[in-house]
Design a protein around this nucleic acid. Structure first.
Lengths: 246, 246
DNA sequence: GCCTCATGTTGATCTGTGTCAAAGCTGACA
DNA sequence: TGTCAGCTTTGACACAGATCAACATGAGGC
């Protein structure tokens, strides 16, 4: 299924609106602006927007996860953001996207084309304000990540990523007596390397090192338990009070 | 002069409005919203907002330059953004700023407090839209910089920074026959290192290396001439078509 | 002029991370 | 059951960039 073939389906009842656009407004605002709400579906691995394409819509993730990546000609790649449900992407009217957006799971987005989006912005100032807030949050997160990329050691980078995942991951479990936290790493070592500006070998080695010093406990390759979050945060250097994942 | 002592002066005629907030709207919009426009002045080196302070206003730079930096307890610092005239900063109502904002030259800002700012956003949707656009531009620039920090070599980093400065610097001169471009580097080697996640020694060495291979010509320490921009962009790996500086 | 201090350059050496290579593990599938 | 492919770990080695140190340059003040 190519980008061109993606179905565009009108929807009269977008489940995302209360979390995303309307998170701070009265319930049913959007329903009154009929004809401007759409779904789009993408399969895992499919590009949502490819760097250089016209990005002619604004979309909010309903379900699934997408990654934002930048790539150099020689193949070096850097992940620059994640889109989780309720996050936004898109610059209607902007020539050429700045980075690739790829669905890493099956993905559903609620999309607005240029004109309806501009109408929406003009008619509902509180939605415009909420969008600005969300964008500023993303900007803060991106800037925090710049410190990780520019100044932290490999070990600190891994610890930063783990502590941010631990804070953000909704499916995490917490042991009430010990306070230990566990979660599934949904990333390959290579994906982690792309977030952190490292090689996958270095990621693997540093995870082994954190395991050996007892900061984390691994079951299998992907299930992580953190016996003491403070210890992990300490390893991260400190940041870790907001972060890349929102 | 401490932050608390900064004068807050009502102004009825803010010269920045057409470049910043109103860049895409009819001329005199702001004049009709009297009583919500302010100036603030800062001396070079003075903090505008210190990380952890309440950031209780939104400000647009009228003149001067400020830097945004993040610092770790052990002193490692990473520059995460620049504020040039017409740029914005601030999150009214947000507890604690995410990073330090410091005036690096004498600085004048046009500021809005929380309430007037929210009124402005509500009453003038085209200004709200313009603010969103500007914030999205900054987000794109931050993400582009993440590629530089995470994946580029020292030499590529220097070339990236120089080509971005060459594109952004208003005071640059261009030789009409040869196409050579020259400008003054307004940054110390240390500041460049903080942008690029390097040490100042590495910055110095790589500048010398670029000079030796003829990509740039130096007069004194700070005046740079680029005989062939394509050559510099090639050295940068490629990105360099938007960038950190706006 | 001379001193001082901030900024910049260069050299020698060290080290963290990349690179290349081999082998282990796990789940899918025939 | 065996095989295969993708992911992960681990080792040996190389190298880019950090660190430590010495010296150069240039502007400002006396």
């Amino acid at each position: 299924m190519t980008l061109a073939e993606v179905q565009t389906i009108h929807c009269g009842d977008c489940p995302i609106r209360h979390r995303a656009v309307c998170a701070r407004c009265d319930a049913d605002e959007l329903e009154e602006l009929d004809g401007i709400k759409y779904y789009r579906s993408y399969e895992a691995g499919q590009p949502v927007v490819w760097s250089g394409d016209q990005m002619n819509f604004v979309g909010s993730v309903v379900s699934g996860i997408a990654t934002l990546t930048q790539t150099m000609e020689d193949g070096r790649t850097q992940m620059v953001g994640l889109l989780l449900p309720s996050d936004f992407v898109g610059r209607p009217g902007r020539e050429g996207a700045a980075y690739d957006v790829v669905a890493t799971t099956d993905l559903v987005m609620c999309c607005f084309r240029k004109k309806p989006f501009e109408d929406l912005m003009a008619k509902t100032p509180h939605i415009a304000h909420r969008l600005l807030e969300m964008t500023l949050d993303e900007l803060d997160a991106a800037r925090e990540w710049m410190l990780v990329l520019g100044r932290k050691t490999a070990r600190e980078k891994i610890a930063s990523l783990l502590s941010i995942i631990a804070r953000r991951d909704a499916s995490l479990t917490k042991d009430p007596t010990s306070g230990a936290v566990s979660f599934d790493l949904k990333l390959t070592r290579e994906a982690m390397a792309d977030y952190l500006g490292l090689t996958l070998e270095t990621v693997s080695r540093q995870i082994s090192a954190l395991k050996k010093s007892g900061v984390i406990v691994l079951e299998g390759k992907r299930h992580v338990t953190v016996p003491d979050m403070r210890r992990l945060i300490e390893e991260a250097g400190d940041d870790s009070d907001g972060g890349f994942w929102g």
